[in-house]
Design a protein around this nucleic acid. Structure first.
Lengths: 198, 198
DNA sequence: GGCGTTCTAGCACAACCGTGCTGCCAAGAT
DNA sequence: ATCTTGGCAGCACGGTTGTGCTAGAACGCC
């Protein structure tokens, strides 16, 4: 049985997904169409549709890959002896401070804004939210060195809301504006968690 | 000089704007077109375009009216003797706890997500952000009873991020889910502000 | 070399989009 | 009664969208 030429489908998918991200960042989610994405990726529509038969599949994969990338980056955070600095380094990855994470958050927001029209993306978004929530729980556990209870649950929710709110504000200001205040705020919050623990 | 029949343009504009909101909430920002809005409002495209010649003007007015409505609702908050309860009542208006405020926040988010494509809406969004920021400053001043300085600025930013993060999380959960935890979290944060002041 | 399969390239179609434009209707001032 | 003008209804046009479908090109295996 002959096995004809095959391209690296995963690489091709990633190439197309990053084209999607670029368009979302530069022109908004509304500008994402099979044609604009194919153009941006430098392929023809036929090739794109050979890998992603429908637009929904294209967006779904793009969203999923984005979550994977973010997860990988967070897991790759170098351990630190200082708990506050370690937690801060992890949480910083959730803020749109660099082009990559900025794109990730922008895509995340686009998913929320378009969720009524794209129900298949809701579960991806919810999965990502649960992951971040779990991360906040772990951060609280690390800093307070206590098991989970009602107060630590509230603290985790507080931290989660704070991080996402900071992300929202960083996104609405220009990419090159001063953003040291956000890190400082985050570090102060994390430090106060250790201070409050007995 | 003859003066022919005139409709209440402001009422007509508000009618069309609320149709825009409904579509954003139910079908996402991507589903907002002159035709879908005219349908939803029960008028024909020609009539809509008589009031809003272009789609951009329609969206711009809808966004501006939304900010006005929110501002009015906040200003109408009854004063309370308890500073924490008063601040909490005001901040609750910024959370998507009821259909109206839910729609407002959803529209706000849609504006952010589509800002690359609709630059004219950016300044409206920025104006709304500044208003909320100012509100947070006033809340901090009220609770700590101290003038603005670096620490109160940080506290206001903290509060602002927390409120917007909470709003984001409330939006991603079903409209009828339990949301008492958000109010509790907010009240605790506001109470801790008074506690910290000397 | 020939075959078979994957990939590429693109046409076609129906639907939808924003917007320019043209009549028609109704109502109030004269 | 007539005239003037704001509002209503809708057609038309060029563009874009998602997707079905077909024909050819490129390549690994026999």
């Amino acid at each position: 049985m002959p096995v004809p030429r095959t391209i690296d489908r995963d690489a091709r998918k990633a190439q197309l997904a990053s084209a999607v991200w670029r368009i979302i960042v530069e022109r908004g989610i509304g500008a994402v169409s099979v044609r604009s994405v194919a153009d941006e990726a430098g392929v023809v529509v036929g090739s794109l549709r050979h890998v992603f038969p429908t637009r929904a599949e294209l967006l779904e994969f793009s969203a999923r890959l984005m979550v994977e990338r973010a997860t990988a980056r967070i897991l790759a955070t170098p351990r630190s002896d200082d708990p506050v600095e370690f937690a801060c380094a992890i949480m910083r990855h959730l803020l749109p401070l660099e082009p990559d994470s900025r794109a990730e958050f922008e895509v995340n927001l686009a998913l929320i804004a378009e969720s009524p029209a794209l129900p298949s993306l809701v579960e991806i978004r919810d999965y990502a939210t649960r992951e971040v929530e779990e991360l906040c729980h772990q951060a609280v556990e690390l800093l307070t060195a206590r098991p989970r209870d009602d107060t630590s649950l509230a603290a985790a929710r507080h931290l989660h809301a704070l991080v996402d709110g900071l992300a929202l504000h960083l996104l609405t200001q220009p990419a090159d504006a001063d953003s040291t205040w956000a890190t400082a705020l985050l570090r102060a919050e994390l430090a106060s968690l250790t201070a409050r623990s007995p």
